[in-house]
Design a protein around this nucleic acid. Sequence first.
DNA 1: TTCGATTTGTCGTTTATGCAACACATTGAT
DNA 2: ATCAATGTGTTGCATAAACGACAAATCGAA
Lengths: 186, 186
Amino acid sequence: MTQSKTDPRVLRTRKLIMDSFIELSGKKEFKDITVKDITSEAKINRATFYYHFEDIYDLLDKILSEVLLINLNAIDFEKSELNEASIIDIFVAITDFQRALSNRCHRGYDETIARIIREQLEIIFYGMLRKQHTTEEDESLKITAVILSWGVYGASVEWRRNCKESSPEAFIKSAIPFLMSGIEHV
Amino acid sequence: MTQSKTDPRVLRTRKLIMDSFIELSGKKEFKDITVKDITSEAKINRATFYYHFEDIYDLLDKILSEVLLINLNAIDFEKSELNEASIIDIFVAITDFQRALSNRCHRGYDETIARIIREQLEIIFYGMLRKQHTTEEDESLKITAVILSWGVYGASVEWRRNCKESSPEAFIKSAIPFLMSGIEHV
DNA sequence: TTCGATTTGTCGTTTATGCAACACATTGAT
DNA sequence: ATCAATGTGTTGCATAAACGACAAATCGAA
């Protein structure tokens, strides 16, 4: 809330870098994109790139997190509870996100994408759990969030692999009882 | 030719400012556009504006000069001589330029536009004259360029006011004998 | 393998931009 | 006419970005 505004120069530069990366990833595969490519496309100095990002993997991290967050932000986690409905919403958001990625020539990032999605899920689940169980100890909530995040992410992998003929909503519903029992068990 | 590249930050910032001004001038009249409007639209600091431009009139100057130059650059002055054909080309470029301006809601700038066009014309005529008369003294060429620039600009005013039914080419052709005699008299 | 070319991180220095504050001018409503 | 609000142009200082250089790593072709 009280976040002091970040320097507009930083916002501009980050946007330039991210836009250039997205532009380039429409032409080349990830492994062929160099930092030099990005900075000359963005017309910024290469040293400036390293001022904002550790390396090209860090950039990918932050871009994907941001894109995923935009998808997930449609769901208002501040208000919604961790129940059947919100789990379905989140699952649909993830499958939408992955579909968007595969439409945009993002190939060869699979492991990175997986990690990012799972990490984001963990953060979200942990936040929601803590709101509902303010009395519980943190460790217990944390491990629940971890297991949930892996489980839901795994479900999305499974859906993409085998079950595209059924809707994501229908697919995740079959897993809801198991997930919810774990949540209520905390 | 040996111009050392200007700092990319400068180019970016100037473009931000100019684009914002052009954007704003589609919504308001010139007299209603403030420096603050421009800088907040461009998301740059107001002090940065004054780093690049003296004031809002200076900005208008440079924007219009640039737009006019793009029109005029279609004509290759480095190669062409100051003769009947090139005068016609220049006259047509000016009338095109003014038509483009009036299409884009630029009202109330008339005096400024007039000055800028005339100054540009003077620069161009002087440059062309000097290439053809390397032996002549500068002062003589300069005054010729001044008179030519006023004359050709005045012709464009006259054409806009009374003679739009005839083509600009036909219109300026009737003035060519007078202009050329002045040029050859140097 | 080896060698040249390219890329990667990092550093120190210079320059452009951000920011807050200022006195002054202009505007607009009462 | 007055007063508050807004815009103007300027300044000093803080910080991001540019630039050039560098050693090390990686890549590619002979």
